[in-house]
Each structure stands twice: as structure tokens, then as C-alpha cells.
Simulated assay, not measured.
Amino acid sequence: MTSPTATSATRSRCTHPTGARTVGPAELGRLRFAVSPVWEAVASLKVLQGQGSTLHDPWAQVTRPRVRDAGLDLGLLLALVPRAGHLADFVTPTPHGREGSMTEALTDVREAATEVVEQDLRILLSESPTPSSREVLVAGLRDPASVRDRVADDLEAYFEVAVAPVWERLRGLGESDIAWRLEQIASGGLHQVLGTLHPRLRMEGERLVVDRTCRPGPTTPGGGLVLVPCAFAFPGLLFLDMPGHSPTASYGPRGVGTLWREAPDATGTALADLVGRTRAGAVVLLDLPMTTSQLACHLDVTPPTMSQHLQVMARAGLVAARRRGREVLYARTQLGDLLVASTHPRGPSVGADR
């Protein structure tokens, strides 16, 4: 079992980072990707408190009134996920599959080891919390087991109000990032991808080094490394190495800077005159792959209507479809890129990154 100090060190939120963590060849050999609604929800709590990149301000400005109007009590969650410093390990369990479900994650939270919960509470108390958070944490130490259920219930309610309305966008961005990085692994190898995920990650020989953690040391042996693209984590890096879970790194996905842009209004443009307003908007948005449902959400049309538009654009060679499991992702073709560049002045650059 990892010591309390070492466990807290595996996160990148400690107050005084001093060392590095390493992920060895065994874990890298079992590497997988996942998207996670609970990781997005937890990371968004920091954004809600004004920490992180200002690119999420459009979401925060809409969400703060929603949370207030819903009458949510975030006292416990904000004590466990403060604006800066340690973030409670047990609230972000490693996703089970390629797309972790909120239900599975909340079950894991409710089943977290009492010792881990108590350890998180003590670490957070040691970091000079606000008076209100201190009161919550001290009360939690009297009954750490009850904290798990309360946190799971609060996370579920918060997710429905704050994250569920934008989950399709977040999921689409994460899936697009995963698809792109898998292609990079196929063409350039694992080292190339791992070395470009985040400035604090680098490859040294056959090991992945995570810089600026609280104490250097080996990761917990067991499951393979799990990489979780998480929009609300940007521009930071979250790293989990908790007993019973695979080492998990959460990073800002490619294209996160486009997440909150408004759907393009193609009215009056040459592109809209050529293919119609909705199709023009879709072509502009598809610099990153999306599903029919994700595009429909952006453009405020029904999925069946969006599907008809995509079929027409695919036949015209403006977009191309690629199946991933049970879903079909659409992306702009080279012809679509050229058309956007020449007829739509507001179109994003090809392969827009963060």
C-alpha cells in the first residue's frame, strides 16, 4: 500500500512539487485510452472556482447561475476539489473501458477504501483550507465512510446540472483526440505520442516520466497506463496512482480551444450559397471528427436531419465517414478544407489545435 505522502504525490496538484514519477514498460505495454464523465465533472469544479484556462469562461458564465438556481450544495465537493492544491484521489477512479460511464464511476466512489478517503481528508486539512472547507473536512473525518455516499450523490447531481448539457461536446472532443493519437501511434510509434501529450510528460528510454510531482518513485505495479483526454483539465495535467486503480493521466485534448465556439453562422457566405446554411456550418465544424449526434447538437437540428445532410456531403466528397465501434465519425476531406478556406472567412485553420 502506498504511503499517504506518496499517494498524494502522484497527483499534480500538490503544493510543493519536488520530484518525478515514472511509468515503466509493463504499464506502457498495456496502455489504453478512455473518456470519462466523472473526470470532466471533477476537473470542471476547479474551473467553476476560477482556476485554469480562461477558454472555459463561456461555460462557467452559464453554469454558475444554473448551479445556484438548482440549489446545489457544493460545500463537500469544493472541499475535496479546492481551487489549488491536492485533489481527493477517490473522486476520480480510473475508467473501466474506452468510454467510462458515470454510473460505474459513482459506484467506484461509493466503494473506495475508507483508508483512502480518510487519507485524502487529512491531506486536504494539512493544506490550509478555507474555514468553511476545514469545517466540512473535520466533520468528514468523524465518519469517512459516509463521505463516499455523500460525494457520489453530490457528484451525480452536479453532473446533471453542469456537465450533462455539454457532455456530447466533451465526449466528441475526447473521442476525436483519441482517434488522432491512435493514428499517430500507428504512424510514429508510442514514444512520439507520449512525448507530445503535455510539457510535464517525457519519455526517457522505455519509461514515461511525469515531472513535478511531490516525491519521485515508481508507479504502483498492476494495470496498464490509462490516458484520459479531459477538456476541463487543460492546461494542467492530472495524474492518479491509487491502490486498486491503473495509473491514469488526464491531459487537455487536441482542439480544446474550439470547444465553446458558437456554431458558425454561414448565412450570406459563398459556402452557404453553394451547399446551404446547415451544411456549410457542418463543413466548418468538421475540422475535428464528430458523430451525427454531436453535429446535430452544435447546429440545433435533429439527428435524422443531420444524417441526411451528411450523406449528401459525403456523396459530394466534402466529408468522409469512419466507423469506430458502433459509432460513425465524420471529418472534413481535403476538398472540404479547400472549400472552407476559399469561401468561409471565419473557418478555422485545418487541424486547429489548442
Rank of each mutant, 00 (worst) to 15 (best):
C214V: 06
H245Y: 08
T196H: 06
H191W: 10
V256R: 03
F234R: 02
T258P: 00
S187I: 05
S250L: 12
L238F: 15
S246R: 15
D211G: 07
E204T: 09
T220G: 09
P235E: 00
Y251G: 06
L237G: 02
D211I: 07
I185D: 08
P229W: 01
L208H: 01
A233V: 10
D273Q: 10
T269S: 15
E262C: 09
P264Y: 11
P247D: 06
P264E: 09
L227D: 08
P247I: 03
D273H: 11
L170M: 04
M242W: 08
L173C: 07
M203I: 15
T267S: 13
L227Y: 07
P216K: 08
A266P: 00
G252H: 01
L201R: 03
G188K: 15
M242Y: 10
Q184F: 15
I185L: 15
Y251R: 12
P235R: 01
G223V: 00
L194M: 09
L271K: 03
C214G: 13
R212P: 01
A231V: 03
H198L: 08
L237A: 05
M203G: 04
G189L: 05
L271Y: 02
H245A: 12
S246W: 14
H245L: 11
T248L: 13
H198F: 06
A263R: 14
R212A: 10
H245F: 11
E183R: 15
C214R: 11
A272C: 00
F239N: 07
V209S: 05
H191L: 13
T248V: 13
R200K: 15
G252S: 05
R212S: 10
C214K: 07
L237D: 06
L240T: 09
P253F: 09
V210P: 06
E175M: 14
R202N: 04
L190E: 11
F239E: 05
E206N: 03
H245S: 10
E183T: 09
G174P: 13
G252T: 01
G205D: 04
L201H: 05
G252K: 01
G223M: 00
G255P: 05
G217V: 10
T267C: 03
A266S: 04
G188V: 09
R207E: 12
M242P: 08
D211C: 08
W260M: 12
L197N: 07
V228F: 09
D177W: 13
H191F: 08
E262V: 11
H198I: 03
L238W: 14
